[in-house]
């Protein structure tokens, strides 16, 4: 029988749970707490605020907290695990869930060489530079980010661009907000004209683009991946390990078992191998 994971939320905080719940609930039946009467009793609950803890069933519960007061209240209510996007609360026992986190494993990395191959195959320009400030990852935008030689990305799709290995130019504010270093994971430029110019230069600089692509992906894996907190929270809620999806997932799981560091070269090689050999018929945006 499939375990039921219930979501308990206030109307204003429900949305923020979706990306994390999409990972946390894998292999379970995800339901609204107020609909659990129609399903099996929940095995665990994910609450988006301490204000909804009252009246929840006596099952392992994870709750989002925004400050130390919330963390103390969660502890007083006996919840198993507190979640927060604030790094300073980690020292007090909260599990860090990046506010802009994504499921990095869902997006196979496309290094510049693979992008160039795809562009040739698709009869696209040799150099393909774009600017993306969209808020939602539509199929078109994902495809563009996956095929671009370089992209100016200033909106909430920056984590996706990094996960895909897109060589990125962004603004100083965005870089600061994500903790990205200029010239290391991204290029930074102020103003649209300067950013466009920087992206064009980056597209023409193979080595620089390749280095940014690689380090951007590693940054996404290390700092923006929701899989790490999801795995930890599942364990503490008694939901077991995250189901491993697909051949790339199995490869990553074996590397995890071997305690392979997130920035190990073997992980990049495994990603490349998965891209090139395990799914050779997938398109540029294999999702």
């Amino acid at each position: 029988m499939t375990a039921v994971l219930a979501l308990a939320a206030t109307p204003t905080t429900a949305r923020r749970a979706v990306p994390f719940l999409s990972l946390l609930g894998r292999g379970t039946d995800v339901v609204s707490w107020h609909r659990t009467a129609e399903a099996e009793p929940p095995a665990a609950v994910l609450a988006t605020s301490t204000t909804v803890l009252h009246g929840l069933p006596e099952v392992p519960t994870a709750v989002w907290v925004d400050d130390l007061t919330g963390l103390r209240r969660a502890a007083a209510d006996g919840v198993e695990v507190a979640l927060s996007s604030r790094e300073d609360l980690v020292d007090h026992g909260a599990v860090l869930v990046p506010g802009s986190g994504i499921d990095v494993a869902r997006w196979p990395v496309l290094p510049p060489v693979a992008r160039a191959e795809q562009r040739r195959a698709l009869d696209l320009p040799e150099q393909f530079v774009v600017a993306v400030d969209h808020r939602e990852p539509t199929d078109d935008i994902v495809t563009i980010l996956a095929l671009a030689s370089a992209a100016v990305v200033t909106g909430p799709l920056l984590p996706l661009a990094l996960a895909l290995g897109t060589p990125v130019v962004t603004g100083p504010d965005t870089a600061r907000r994500f903790g990205l270093q200029a010239g290391v994971e991204v290029e930074v430029a102020s103003g649209a004209a300067a950013a466009d110019e920087a992206a064009r230069s980056l597209a023409a600089w193979d080595l620089g683009a390749a280095a940014l692509s690689r380090r951007g992906r590693r940054f996404a894996e290390a700092h923006l991946d929701l899989a790490h907190p999801a795995a930890a929270v599942r364990h503490r809620l008694g939901l077991g390990a995250l189901p491993v999806l697909g051949p790339e997932g199995r490869l990553a799981a074996r590397l995890d078992e071997l305690a392979t560091p997130a920035d190990a070269r073997i992980r990049a090689r495994a990603d490349e191998a998965a891209l090139r050999f395990l799914a050779p018929h997938q398109g540029a945006v294999s999702r």
Binding site: A6, L7, A8, A9, T10, P11, A14, R15, A17, V18, L21, S22, L23, G25, R26, G27, T28, D29, V30, V31, S32, W33, H34, R35, T48, D103, R106, P243, L245
Partner: peptide, 16 residues
Amino acid sequence: DRTRTTHAAELAALHE
């Protein structure tokens, strides 16, 4: 499987 879980999460959030 990813899509199924994401849809379930979206639906649960909508109900809440």
